[in-house]
């Protein structure tokens, strides 16, 4: 009797062990978000979660855990140090996460992660107040050249995509601007609308709801965005600048290959789901996929640009 029980339990244990190896996921997956509930990144994670559950199969449960603080650094450090078993993944923002490894002592580096998928690419835009006569890049650059530093540019914080965009633009256009870094994009946008600064640099999703009160001068994408088809790209206006804010998902480094494949695959399938795109756009997240190796390359490219900027014109 005793022996029988032992054998049965041994079989059960073995059975569970093998099924655990074979069938990830077998327990709940946590997405660590480095911002508080209700922020853009948080909403992205919560929108993605049900689609991940659907495409991971195996009755997967995905829950979001907020660990806000230090512009996402506390959360992403937690992911870097988590056990690489596929049950802890986290949101990841570019260029912010890489820029913070330069201007601050960070508890992680580009090598700390397995890059799963970047799902959001929110391109930079230049806006001017509605009453302003600066409605195109020609007029803007002419105004900026007339008096170096005479154009005041509202944006959210230094060392982010807004500033990197301006640096790319300055290189292309050869004009100087005065940066006015607000605490977040909403106050900066209000200052542009009130005419307190001459222009502003934002992400497309941040100004779409304010189309009627602002001129959108251009968008930093290779081609026009479906979300604002009337807005010309900078390339069309003779300035070859592409830049934006990106949000995606990473796991700790050294994730088992089969788990990585499964997660990347689930992200790819979610991305192809039209419902997913609809939900993401509704929450202000323009989608664009870079999965697995593509994401890693994207991260490397962003890191190298940030490093170059940091070495030549440090932002602090």
């Amino acid at each position: 009797m005793k022996l029988k029980t032992l054998i049965v339990s041994a079989c059960l244990v073995a059975g569970f062990a093998t099924s655990a190896m074979a069938e990830y996921p077998e327990k709940k997956i946590e997405i660590i978000v480095g911002y508080s509930a209700g922020g853009g990144t948080d909403v992205m994670a919560r929108t993605v979660a049900p689609f991940l559950e659907r495409y991971l199969g195996n009755d997967a449960t995905v829950v979001v855990k907020n660990m806000p603080g230090a512009s996402g650094q506390i959360g992403v450090t937690e992911v870097a140090n988590a056990k690489p078993d596929g049950y802890t993944i986290g949101t990841y923002n570019l260029p912010g996460m890489m820029a913070r490894t330069l201007d601050r002592k960070a508890g992680y580096s580009a090598e700390s992660f397995t890059y799963l998928a970047n799902v959001v690419d929110d391109p930079n835009v230049i806006v001017t107040p509605k009453g302003s006569d600066i409605t195109s890049m020609d007029k803007l650059v002419a105004a900026a050249r007339k008096e170096p530093g005479g154009m005041t540019v509202g944006m959210s914080s230094l060392g982010g995509d807004d500033q990197f965009f301006l640096i790319r633009l300055q290189k292309e256009s050869g004009a100087e601007y005065t940066i006015v870094p607000f605490k977040g994009s909403a106050p900066a946008r209000t200052a542009v609308m009130g005419g307190h600064v001459n222009m502003g640099i934002f992400n497309l999703s941040e100004v779409l709801g304010f189309r009627d009160d602002l001129n959108i001068v251009g968008v930093a994408r290779p081609e026009r965005s479906d979300l604002a088809p009337n807005v010309p790209t900078f390339a069309e206006q003779g300035f070859n600048v592409v830049n934006g804010s990106m949000r995606g998902f990473v796991a700790p480094a050294n994730l088992p290959k089969d788990v990585e494949d499964k997660l990347v695959d689930a992200f790819k399938k979610a991305y192809q789901d039209p419902e997913f795109t609809k939900a993401m756009v509704a929450s202000g997240n323009p989608v664009s996929l870079a999965a697995g190796a593509d994401f890693k390359a994207l991260n490397q490219e962003q890191f190298e640009f940030a490093k170059k900027v940091w070495e030549t014109t440090p932002w602090k």
Binding site: S36, G38, V43, G209, F210, A282, S283
Partner: peptide, 18 residues
């Protein structure tokens, strides 16, 4: 500020278009 987050989670973005 946190209420804005609550609006955003339901796909309601602040602004005149809202």
């Amino acid at each position: 500020a946190v209420m804005l987050g609550g609006l955003l989670i339901h796909g309601l973005q602040p602004g005149p278009l809202l």
